[in-house]
Design a protein around this nucleic acid. Structure first.
Lengths: 147, 147
DNA sequence: TAAGATTGAATCGTCAATCTTA
DNA sequence: TAAGATTGACGATTCAATCTTA
């Protein structure tokens, strides 16, 4: 059992929630203003692009993006309907599927990045010195590590 | 117009999203395991408790919690139905409402806090030194400040 | 029996429209 | 005309149940 959190820890927690909410809202707003898909879609497109020719299994994407099974299944439904993702049967496991990026999907990701990048810079880069951003990334890394 | 974000800034952004998601998921899970309401409810209960006898107007709560108008309206619907929040007409502005905490709402907040506190400690306190938590809170504060 | 994936039903969030009063 | 608040319609998420193959 762990002890009670200090005031400082509670403050760090509260600000983590608030800072994420504020920055995400800003990025979402910018993408929407340009008639582009949401960040969820970008995350999927990027992971599939990184996976290259082999593609990814849905369960791999779930773990990478911390999404629930049914949530991802329906997200892929929508992205496949939009023509950005292809679903194929899986050779090595008959239960599974293999997801891959379409050319239209790759194009959309490239189209989204400049807008996304500007938002990140406005929400984070413009508010911190380089050394501060480095420290922030390091401290947040400690919160992510699996114990 | 702002420039392109550095790799460090992009990494800080990505980890901010991931760390928030991971810690929030953990806290939500703990509350649910104890059959308690979600964090949204806690936030509302706490703000109303802090506002004391006077209570709060819905638009004040929206700004405090960064919630959309219709979103808050329906959240209050549910919390009022559960008996935790009271909605009354507003004396000084006929358009508005005045929200206040019921005794049951105050009790529920007190019941939630120990579970919430343990989760915060596990998700943040146990992973950082005291000085690190202080630094993290300070850096996150810079992201929240209104420009 | 369990893992990977999908689906139905219900809940919640979002957008635009609406209502009331300032 | 605009601010505060609510509502209808629609889209997204969640939970549990289901289907298929390991």
């Amino acid at each position: 059992v762990t002890g009670q959190p200090s005031d400082t820890v509670v403050r760090a927690w509260a600000r983590l929630q608030r800072a994420q909410q504020a920055t995400l809202t800003e990025v979402d707003r910018a993408l929407k203003a340009e008639q582009l898909p949401s960040l969820d879609w970008y995350d999927v497109l990027l992971e599939l692009e990184r996976s290259g020719e082999a593609g990814l299994r849905p369960f791999e994407l779930e773990r990478e993006l911390l999404l629930a099974q049914s949530n991802l299944s329906r997200l892929i439904d929508r992205m496949a309907a939009a023509g950005y993702v292809a679903r194929a049967a899986c050779d090595e496991d008959g239960r599974g599927r293999r997801l891959s990026l379409t050319e239209a999907g790759a194009q959309m990701r490239r189209r989204m990045w400049p807008v996304y990048a500007r938002s990140i810079q406005a929400a984070v880069g413009d508010k911190l010195e380089a050394a501060e951003a480095e420290t922030l990334a390091e401290l947040l890394g400690k919160l992510i590590s699996r114990p």
